[in-house]
Structures are given as structure tokens and as C-alpha cells.
Amino acid sequence: MNASFFALPELTLRFWPIWRRHLFVWWKVAIPSILGHLADPLIYMLGLGFGLGKIIPEMGGTSYLLFLAGGTLCYSTMNSASFEALYSGFSRMFHQRTWDAILNTPMTLDDIVLSEVLWGATKSLMSGLAVLLVIWLLGMAHTWLALWTIPLALLIGLCFAAVGLIMTALAPSYDFFMYYFTLVITPMMMLSGVFFPVEQLPAALQLVSAVLPLTHAIDLVRPLLIGDVPNEIVLHLMVLVAYTVLGFYISLVLFRHRLAK
């Protein structure tokens, strides 16, 4: 690897027209996209919440439906950013050659990768807002603290878009992403307390859980939806920020290497 690939990213507002491009594409498919953002959490929460909720009246000190709402908000935002960074990002980089077109203008790869992370986070924000709407529709919104989950959805999006882009930078084809979803994302859902409290896991798995970004996202979001101030806010935020920064830098170095060919 060339030393110049490791240069620190140049962060400027040049990403703006690229982000606008992504929004413009999204606008053309906005209706199915919004329906997807709404239907997915609605199905999970209605299905699992009302089904299991009958059997499990309470979990983590609250109703199972509300417990599940926090997990759902986090995994929905995680999924939105991950799909965007992996499948859509790969399509823009490789299949459609959108990045090649942009690189012929006064833009740099740093601008493009930054726009990808911010766009992934934008999709997470949309997804987070959709879950909040579902929570409100289901009559579970009873605290203004819940609104703090909106900026959190953006941060969770930044984190998973940045980490996901590492996969995109390494991927030879779309099939490669199956590894990430089956070996990383799905186990993370089970280990991070989406469906049940992390305390239910064996001690060794709890240690694994403690380093996963989704765990920290849920530790912030779930109390806010219930109406409590989360514990150890700074720690949780720092973990999410650290994954974001590292993911962004590592993926940028890998993209620089890949696109120098």
C-alpha cells in the first residue's frame, strides 16, 4: 500500500452536491422506500410484540412491546445504513460507476466517501423517524425524552454506514455482503439486546456484547423511549463515535487503494 492512502481525510462541504444527488435518486422511489421503513418495524412490533407480549407481560421493567420498540428502532436504523452502504454504495461505486463520473469533476474520493456515510445516516434518520411514528401510532409515545432518539438515529446511521463501507471497499461482488449480514449483523441482533436483555446471555457472550456498537445504541435508545435518562451516556456515545471514525478512516484507506488501480 502506498503511504498516501493513509493520509487523514479532508472533510469539506463539497460532499453537499453528492448528497443531494443521492436524495434526488431516493425522491424518485420515495413512496415504496417510506412504506418499507414503516412496514418493517410495524410487522416486527405487531407480530412479536402482540404475539410474545401476551406470553411475556413484562421485560426489563416495562411492557414487552415498549421493550421491543427500543430494539426495533436501533436495528432498523442499523439495517438502513448497512444496506445503503453495502448494496447501494457498491452499486454506485462498481455497477453504475457513479463514483467514476464524480471523480472526473473537482471532487475527491474523500468527498465521495463522506457523502456515502452521511447519506447512509440520512436513510437511518428516515428509518428512525418511521419507527417513532409507529410507536406513536401504537399508542406507546408518552415521553418527550423519546425525541432524543432522533439525533441518536443519525449517529447510529453514521456508525453503521462507516463500518459497512469497509465491506463495500473489500467486496468483489454483491454476494460478498451475505457474509457480513449472516456473520455480523444477524448475530449482533441476538447479542445486543434487541429482543431480550443482554443479562440473559452467558457471561462470555455478555463480554462480546459489551464491545458491539448496537448494544450501546440500545442502551441509549431504550431508556429514552421508556422515559428514563440512560446510564453512562458519554461511554455509549464515545463507542458509537469511535466506530464511526475508525470505520470511516479504514474504509477510506481501502477505497483509495482499490480505486488507485
Binding site: 444527488r21 435518486v25 453504475q96 457513479t98 463520473a101 472526473n104
Partner: peptide
């Protein structure tokens, strides 16, 4: 460019 890079 040689390859089509238009936005489909």
C-alpha cells in the same frame, strides 16, 4: 469516459 457512467 470509455464506459457509460451516466446516472440511470
Amino acid at each position: 469516459p470509455q464506459m457509460d457512467t451516466l446516472d440511470p
